[in-house]
Amino acid sequence: MGVREELGKDLARSTAAVSKTVTVQVVDVTDTGAVNVDYSGALLLDVPCTDAYRNRQAGDWVAMRPGSKPVVMWRLGDDPAEVDESRIREIADDVAHDVQVVRAVSWGTGAPPGAGWQSVTAMFMRKTSQGKVELYAQVDNPTDTPPDEPAGRAPGPVKVTPTDSGSWRNGRPDDYASTPTQGDWTGGGNRRGAWFYGSKIAQACAGKTVAKMTVQFTRRRGSGVNAKRPMHLYLHNYTSAPGGQLNLGAGPEELVSLSVGAKGTATLPASWRNALASGSARGLAIYASGRNDYAAFTGGTITITFSA
């Protein structure tokens, strides 16, 4: 009998079952917004959550209403107000820098009233790398010092999606697993998978300083055991899928582990992001041997952030 059914029967014997909650830990957040949780050592999959449980993350301790259809009610822990305030301020700062603002606009037939006005002999303008307009006024006899130059700002982040992906087995494209897959479940040979981006990564990084690269993946349901399994990540140097064997580059790196249905983000090491940004590497691959870490993954969208 499954864990859910046992849990439901146990609670049905209690008159307090309707109001009872239990404390469980989130193992992963799934691609549907539900969570996989650890309930007394058992893995419950795709447990739905109420709207009160926001900013869901693996490792959260939560209150779950058990039963044959359990529901996560809310997160346990400290008041998130301070964290939320910091996050909201960061978002507001980003929005403010994306908006072009002029303090005031007016005109008339005479000179403007009040102090501090400069008589402009020529006006210059240019477009910045962020697509904003900068103005510069040339004056003959300045009566006040100009304002400080605005601080340099990093270009906005860029998301690069794969142009293709696939799986390889026994030195050629896999006839049975098109989704990137690692390991061997049936004894037919170890699989390796890959995501391809053409030249989009290097083009997005040209002329910029890369600060960080992250990649989002989702573990496909029905691939291997339900528990967390690490992705064995490699680099590769293909702009598109090869017709023969997929050769692997640097690796492996175990940057993220996921249970079935879970989505997660891997942060690439500095040497990998430098290789991808320069074009000396072109994409990402996975490979494992045997059944233990057999798993299939989708996703592969790379988020690139830059420094000023």
Rank of each mutant, 00 (worst) to 15 (best):
residue 99 V to W: 03
residue 100 Q to T: 06
residue 101 V to D: 04
residue 102 V to D: 08
residue 102 V to W: 09
residue 104 A to T: 06
residue 104 A to V: 02
residue 104 A to F: 12
residue 110 G to V: 11
residue 110 G to H: 05
residue 111 A to F: 04
residue 111 A to N: 07
residue 112 P to T: 04
residue 112 P to L: 00
residue 113 P to L: 02
residue 115 A to L: 00
residue 116 G to W: 02
residue 117 W to D: 02
residue 117 W to Q: 00
residue 117 W to I: 03
residue 118 Q to E: 15
residue 120 V to H: 00
residue 121 T to Y: 01
residue 122 A to C: 06
residue 122 A to H: 06
residue 122 A to V: 08
residue 123 M to L: 14
residue 123 M to K: 04
residue 123 M to R: 03
residue 124 F to N: 08
residue 126 R to K: 14
residue 130 Q to A: 14
residue 130 Q to S: 15
residue 132 K to Y: 07
residue 133 V to H: 13
residue 133 V to I: 13
residue 133 V to A: 11
residue 134 E to R: 03
residue 135 L to P: 08
residue 135 L to S: 06
residue 136 Y to E: 12
residue 136 Y to R: 08
residue 139 V to K: 04
residue 140 D to A: 14
residue 140 D to I: 12
residue 141 N to L: 11
residue 142 P to W: 04
residue 142 P to H: 09
residue 143 T to C: 02
residue 143 T to P: 12
residue 144 D to H: 09
residue 144 D to E: 14
residue 145 T to I: 01
residue 145 T to V: 07
residue 145 T to E: 13
residue 146 P to K: 13
residue 146 P to W: 12
residue 148 D to A: 15
residue 148 D to I: 13
residue 149 E to N: 10
residue 150 P to G: 10
residue 151 A to V: 14
residue 151 A to N: 10
residue 152 G to Q: 09
residue 153 R to P: 07
residue 154 A to T: 00
residue 156 G to Q: 09
residue 156 G to L: 12
residue 160 V to W: 00
residue 160 V to K: 01
residue 161 T to E: 13
residue 161 T to R: 08
residue 162 P to H: 07
residue 163 T to C: 00
residue 164 D to R: 03
residue 165 S to I: 04
residue 166 G to L: 10
residue 166 G to T: 12
residue 167 S to P: 02
residue 168 W to Y: 14
residue 169 R to M: 04
residue 169 R to G: 02
residue 170 N to D: 10
residue 170 N to Y: 07
residue 171 G to Y: 11
residue 173 P to H: 01
residue 173 P to C: 02
residue 174 D to L: 10
residue 174 D to F: 10
residue 176 Y to N: 13
residue 177 A to G: 06
residue 178 S to H: 06
residue 186 T to V: 13
residue 186 T to C: 02
residue 186 T to Y: 02
residue 188 G to Y: 15
residue 188 G to A: 11
residue 190 N to L: 06
residue 191 R to M: 11
residue 192 R to Y: 05
